[in-house]
Design a protein around this nucleic acid. Structure first.
Lengths: 343, 343
DNA sequence: ACAGATTATGTTAACGCTAACGGCCTTTGG
DNA sequence: CCAAAGGCCGTTAGCGTTAACATAATCTGT
């Protein structure tokens, strides 16, 4: 078995490439960045030398010298939520041919973690920041205001942003869902959701939902919360719990599609007449669940679009140099599915 | 209402903090990094000045000067696969208190994209690289060999790694599943999976599976492949297709749990006797699916553990004390669930 | 009280790259 | 044939930080 020679070299630099190809470091730099005028012959020579040495440019030094960093900080609460990877997909796609690169940080819904992740990321002087939500620690807010780079807060427009904002109104999403449910003739309505006090968007949806019920002279009959665990399973369990406690409910509003799907499966197993005797709705429009026996009523949260618009703002401004707090509100659309009576 | 002064400042540097607190830049640097001896009085002064100015250290300059970067490059095929976010979770957890920070890159199962993502990441001179799979372009392999940093290839041990390797043998996972299925008395077996030629792990599982069948004198009766779309839905559709074409199959082996779940739902709807007349099994052990009407037989791929072990190697906390070229093979465990007959 | 250790701070020189500018050489047009 | 323009490439001076060393102030034990 041949063993590769031990790696005694110091790391390669522009100087190594420049010496190997007989031109100045500056010229090598120009070739490698496709910037400025270089003759084809020289370019060829440099590229060859660079490749055969296996040179990889040092962006740390490059960024320091040019005061330019092609990174965009993306800060989200979780990767296991399905929603955020989709937003990320939109961001990546939009950034694809801009030379910008997303760098992801995860906060686990903790404002303190968010603050420290933000601090860490800002210390790499990214070209922009995209982060979820409008609620941050005062320190985090201050950092963003002082960073001197475009900031886009995404997902939610119900509140005051630091700079630009792209999202939907969760309050109005909840309200519209309530209207649709009431219009379909349901009257005894229960809510099932997460216990997380830091999930402001779920909270706002619930508030809007209750507001919508109030407009029809209704209130929530019952509610049930959960924390952690498999969402599908939790949905199942909570549904059983709430229906045992309040058997006369005729509608269940879930704070996300996953627990909604669990509830749906449980109801179908029990032979409950959905949507005749009991209606169900979730939130998010995750197409992961397309294969369920019935399509759950839900509301599309425009996740991919949010990512794309946010990325556009970062990319657009990094080129144009515009300054300004753009606010983009997208419209979530109701997908009635098969779990709401046709009114 | 006090208005903050307009933002005419150039970006803050150590010098600003040093002037504001009346000590040298070096001392400020020491305070901010908790390194070297500084008197409590000075520390206090510096911290105060730094905080009130809203100073955020410039890690670009820091990294250049110290030749140290606290980033770990993590390169995975996809974020929507459920599996990889879990691996990531393991990595993050393990890196939590090491001062190291994971940076994620996504390849969409494309070797070329992997190569370019790797190049991009190496240009930031990370402390280590964790990436999925053993199959890479020659250029990517060369880059890793020359990088002079620890490399950990994860998920798969069936092949030759560049440096360290942490994973399971997908070949043996497939083989064991075949043995279990044969032992339970199933004989007419079909396979359903992805069409992706770049999903080497799925391919190796299938090869191992066929090998296992061959040992019992069996071969696959039929197979069905898909590409893209909602996995749950595809599982449903493919199951219908394959059972229509080959109605006498008595077992379906799915290449992942998601399509397996779709198949399970379809079978239950059709009133097919599972596992009596038809057995089902998937792969991965995703607990997302815990709430299904029946637990799908599956094999746990040790995702979180893989992430943790890989991170340990990078962080230099590996138990082995080896300096490189470690190979850790984890053992996937069969979870029989409710969709295989008890033998 | 004084050498020697210890603690606290400052000074200098990189780290590897790129912006800015300058100079040479070729081309072009009148 | 010469001036102006442009293509090509090199030189210089940082970018903001930290390693390494130097220096000043304080403490120890005898």
């Amino acid at each position: 078995m041949t063993r590769p020679p031990v790696d005694h070299r110091r790391p390669l630099t522009l100087r190594d490439v420049s010496e190997a190809s007989g031109v100045s470091e500056m010229t090598v730099s120009r070739v490698l960045r496709n910037r400025g005028d270089v003759s084809d012959a020289t370019r060829e020579k440099v590229l060859l030398a660079s490749k055969s040495l296996g040179y990889v440019p040092n962006k740390i030094a490059g960024a320091l010298a040019s005061q330019r960093v092609n990174l965009v900080a993306v800060i989200i609460p979780s990767l296991s939520n399905l929603v955020f990877p989709e937003v990320l997909g939109g961001i990546s796609e939009e950034l694809e041919d801009t030379g910008l690169q997303p760098v992801v940080g995860v906060t686990n819904y903790s404002p303190e973690k968010e603050e420290s992740v933000l601090y860490e990321m800002l210390s790499w002087r990214p070209s922009g920041v995209i982060l979820a939500g409008l609620e941050h620690t005062p320190a985090a807010r201050a950092m963003m205001e002082n960073a001197g780079i475009p900031i886009v807060e995404i997902m939610d427009v119900d509140g005051q942003g630091v700079d630009s904002v792209v999202g939907i109104s969760h309050r109005r999403a909840g309200l519209h869902m309530a209207e649709a449910i009431v219009a379909a003739g349901y009257r005894r309505i229960g809510f099932l959701g997460t216990k997380m006090p830091e999930d402001h968007r779920a909270r706002k949806r619930l508030e809007g939902f209750q507001e919508g019920l109030a407009l029809a002279g209704l209130t929530l009959e019952d509610r049930e919360f959960y924390q952690g665990g498999s969402a599908l399973l939790k949905g199942r369990e909570m549904t059983e719990t709430i229906l045992t406690r309040s058997p006369d409910l005729d509608f269940l509003y879930y704070s996300n599609d996953m627990i909604g799907a669990g509830g749906l499966l449980w109801c179908l197993e029990k032979g409950i007449d959905v949507p005749g005797k009991l209606g169900l709705a979730g939130f998010n429009g995750v197409d992961l669940l397309d294969g369920l026996p019935r399509r759950l009523a839900t509301m599309d949260a425009c996740r991919r679009a949010i990512g794309k618009r946010a990325a556009q703002i970062i990319a657009g401004r990094s080129h144009s140099g515009l300054i300004g707090g753009e606010v983009i509100e997208l419209e979530p659309t109701l997908q009635p599915g098969d779990t709401i009576r046709k009114s």
